[in-house]
Design a binder for these strands. Sequence first.
DNA 1: ATAAGTGCAAACCGTTTGCAGCAGT
DNA 2: ACTGCTGCAAACGGTTTGCACTTAT
Lengths: 153, 153
Amino acid sequence: MLDQDEQSLHSRFTDFEKFCRKKGLKMTHQRLEIYRELLTSKDHPTVEALFLRVRKRIPTISLDTVYRTLALLEEAGMTNRIQTSEGLTRFESDYGAHHHLICKKCQTIEDFTWKSFDTMLLPPELEAWGAIQTRNIVAEGICTACLKKEKKH
Amino acid sequence: MLDQDEQSLHSRFTDFEKFCRKKGLKMTHQRLEIYRELLTSKDHPTVEALFLRVRKRIPTISLDTVYRTLALLEEAGMTNRIQTSEGLTRFESDYGAHHHLICKKCQTIEDFTWKSFDTMLLPPELEAWGAIQTRNIVAEGICTACLKKEKKH
DNA sequence: ATAAGTGCAAACCGTTTGCAGCAGT
DNA sequence: ACTGCTGCAAACGGTTTGCACTTAT
């Protein structure tokens, strides 16, 4: 399990290098650290949160660079943008099909997988719409932590 | 079919009135027109789009009022806010469980229903997360109209 | 050496807010 | 008449952009 993660983490870094080379983009300290931070963040950080975390390692980094790098990564399909109902933009590293659980109280996002859904046939009527590429579930409710807080009051 | 729509349209207006009364809110010309526009709009309009449409009937209406009224309707559960990946906020009148098809090219949103999914049991692991209240699918791809345009070029 | 990337500050744009006059109850 | 709603204009906050300097190739 851990080995697999290490493996894929490493391959993701080389993918990033390859991508940059191919596009003639420079491999900078800032880009690498932003990408690293995104890969190792399991919560779905906002731009601000990523900025603050990366700044611990590169104190002179600017918020602008984080924005620009995220745009780059998004374009390359290496990160996904998630728009929460609050209008906050969050990011996650792209690691295959998964779905989201969002707590309406504390706004945290958790991932879950559901293989049988991913391979399930969509209603046939949808074929007329066009070419569907992705399907994601967004499930909303109240997480256990928030449920407990509610009971206490 | 039409009768049913008319019926529900009417009941939705009375619901709106009831809600306002209960909350001690005033039933104004502006609110009624914004609500009507939202109910009859089948595309998922942005605030701007709603504003422009309502302005045809109430030329002096301000964008602010549209924002305030939408917040009100949202609070009452009479409309849903949809955050697109472009960061645009769109609205739809709340009319029961449905899902979204989003075209990555033209950004239009279409609804679809999938009853068997709605009643399907979620993976049992999710129960530990908390109390799930809603589940929505967002399917993305390219709509037929955009596919045709691509072929032409 | 060269072209791209960075940090800074200013611009931008959708959204929210304070206020004085207006309208529904 | 009273209270809340509206329109205006100004403020706000997240994001983008222009520019001169710095850095990877």
